[in-house]
Amino acid sequence: MTRTILTILWKDLKIELRTKEAFSASFVFCIIVLVIFNFTLDLTTEEALRLGPGFLWVAFAFAGVLSLNRSFALEKEEGCAQALMLAPVDRGAIYVGKLLANVIFMLVTEIIILPLFVVFFNLDLGGKIPPLLLIFFLGTVGFASVGTIFSAIAANTRMREVMLPILLLPITIPVLIAAVETTAYAMGVRDEASFWFRLLIAYDVVFTVASFLAFEYVVEE
């Protein structure tokens, strides 16, 4: 199973390193969101800290949709999805490999966007970076766990670009709210976020396991 997961991950990373399609689309989208918010709202540092977590996760969520749309679209080209299902491997391992690749693609964008966010809004996040990165990781795993399986579903529909956000965004509202609240806590805006932190972890565990188990039925013809 580990071999299959690493093989799928290796393949997706190779393709992304060569094409940079997922990264370039999501990075440009995030930059545009930050620039628009920065120039239209003209926030003070306190206001930027209060509203920043929301800005960040709006950008991450929609950029994530762009990246996830690409995930299974590339498997539909030349019948590759069918070839994956023909391989003598556990189909759940294919899901985990795709999920890891999607988490890495999203995290890379988020890690590059964070310093730009700090510069645009003139913030000092100093020692808050490590907890922020942990929250980015947990939020991204939750978002991508559902996004990966919905990407597989949407890829089989005629309007996959429209279908994925319609399916994905409503069901990820809990993880996005939890991510915003815990990000605000990590930035020092909230005094308490233990409930949201527990929700973030519970969402990750429940939806990753459920998607892993459901994947083979979702991709079956």
Binding site: K11, K14, I15, R18, T19, L74, E77, E78, G79, C80, Q82, A83
Partner: peptide, 8 residues
């Protein structure tokens, strides 16, 4: 269909 990845 070729079952091949265009960018590999």
């Amino acid at each position: 269909e070729s079952f091949l990845y265009k960018d590999l």
